[in-house]
Write a protein that binds this DNA or RNA. Structure first.
Length: 198
DNA sequence: GGTGGGATTAGCT
DNA sequence: GCTAATCCCACCA
């Protein structure tokens, strides 16, 4: 089942947890790539200095202020892109960063995108998964509810076999930020092999 | 096993 | 000028 607006237009922290086990699907002209979400981070509008929307809207973060269910894709460190799902009400400026995926389908395509064949490190970071999935800055502001790039629920029939176990969620502080480091807004699946930091 | 530096660009101060 | 929601490789242990 494709995730729709009623899923995305809710509390960001809840969505960050519920996205664990869901599937990111990209139908490219030359094939389909699918990853199972195993690590996320929430970025909030209130009291969260690490959130790009914290200081208001700019050209870069404009899609964070749009309606829920769209992509927010931005350049970090001048070289890599990060992929976020815009959440909550329109205008709030909240999102969930997808930090890691378990490669599920189209693995040879992912390997080509990333120029590596090491399954464990193919999608175990936000910049890496963007590359593996064939996401780029053109996806910024695009809807995830129709079109080539979409999210499928964790109980989708075609992927159900990948969620046979109960998902055990751990919560920690976020990674790679210098402000808001004390907030416990990172979520990941326990004992997952496709996450770089436990 | 762990650490340190370089790549590369947009947006702020 | 400096920093950033990162990654990779060289180098040391």
């Amino acid at each position: 089942m494709i995730l729709r607006r009623d899923f995305f237009a809710r509390t960001t922290e809840v969505i960050a947890q519920e996205l664990l086990g869901a599937f990111l699907v990209h139908d490219l002209p030359y094939g389909r790539v699918v990853g199972r979400i195993v690590e996320t981070e929430a970025y909030l509008s209130d009291g969260d200095p690490a959130c790009h929307a914290h200081k208001g809207m700019t050209n870069r973060n404009a899609s964070m202020f749009g309606p829920a269910g769209r992509a927010y894709v931005y350049l970090v460190y001048g070289m890599y892109y990060c992929f976020n799902v815009v959440t909550a009400e329109k205008g709030k400026g909240e999102a969930v960063l997808i930090r890691a995926l378990e490669p599920i389908e189209g693995i040879s395509l992912m390997e080509r995108h990333r120029n590596t064949s090491d399954l464990k490190t193919l999608c175990n970071g936000p910049g890496k998964l963007v590359m593996a999935m064939g996401i780029d800055k053109r996806h910024d502001g695009q809807t995830l509810m129709s079109g080539a790039l979409k999210l499928m629920s964790s109980d989708s029939s075609e992927f159900q076999k990948y969620n046979s176990q109960e998902i055990d969620i751990l919560r920690t502080t976020r990674i790679g930020i210098s402000k808001g480091t004390e907030l416990p807004l990172r979520y990941y699946i326990r004992d997952c092999n496709f996450i770089s930091k436990k």
